[in-house]
Design a protein around this nucleic acid. Structure first.
Lengths: 124, 124
DNA sequence: CCGTATCCCCTCCGATACTG
DNA sequence: CAGTATCGGAGGGGATACGG
């Protein structure tokens, strides 16, 4: 499916799995969503837009995203400090794909209970 | 980004986030990948193809995937029991998107350490 | 063959407090 | 303002044992 290279090791990293796991963590997707609404955004501004997130986690997520090349961080040596975050080109390409995924998700969204329906179908 | 409806509640479910979290769990993507290689597949056959997974987890994942409408389960009332799993149409559509994602992931794959490079760039 | 039941560790993440 | 340090609870998932 993903055409994993299948090099010797079992745990051989598959790029997509890494990304998927990162973005599967809590808040990741929301952060990306909010970043996409503005060219640049500051830490606390972002934090305010994500009701419920803690500084700790936001900071952690941003670091991960930066590490993956999805987010750029620009520090201005001022007092008080100013730091601006923005999406990279890479992330903007990803955004397109995520939107397709969102379309897919909504297309197939169920009112609430497919499970019972599926079981009913099975019983025939 | 995903055009979340923003209905009253904070935890208002966004379809894509649900899906992403499910598929972000361990093995989910691999299971889908293996399912895509055959029309139908049996439990232990699938298990053998996923080196390291336990019955417990495989069973759990399959239940979740079935619940999300990505997998169909067909039980044959035989002895010994036979159960066949297969992907739904919905999952096959998803597969297309995942492949795009895989292409994206490989396009941007880094040798190993972007982090240091990013920091260096920042310092200029 | 196809699972469920248990136990247990370990990572994730929220809350809180504190710094440059 | 923009974070880091620390702690503790919750739950994901591995190992093992057992059942229809």
């Amino acid at each position: 499916m993903t055409d994993e290279p299948v090099d010797g090791k079992v745990g051989a990293t598959c790029a997509i799995v890494d990304v998927w796991e990162l973005l599967g963590r809590r808040w990741s997707l929301h952060i990306l969503k909010n970043l996409s609404t503005k060219d640049v955004i500051r830490f606390n501004e972002l934090k305010r837009s994500l009701a419920g997130i803690s500084s700790t986690v936001l900071s952690e997520r941003l670091l991960e995203l930066e590490r993956e090349g999805l987010v750029t961080k620009k520090i201005y040596p001022e007092v008080p400090p100013r730091v601006e975050y923005s999406m990279t080109v890479q992330a903007k390409e990803l955004e397109v794909i995520i939107k397709e995924l969102a379309r897919w998700a909504n297309k197939w969204r169920r009112p609430d209970g497919l499970k019972t329906a599926a079981i009913a179908a099975q019983k025939k």
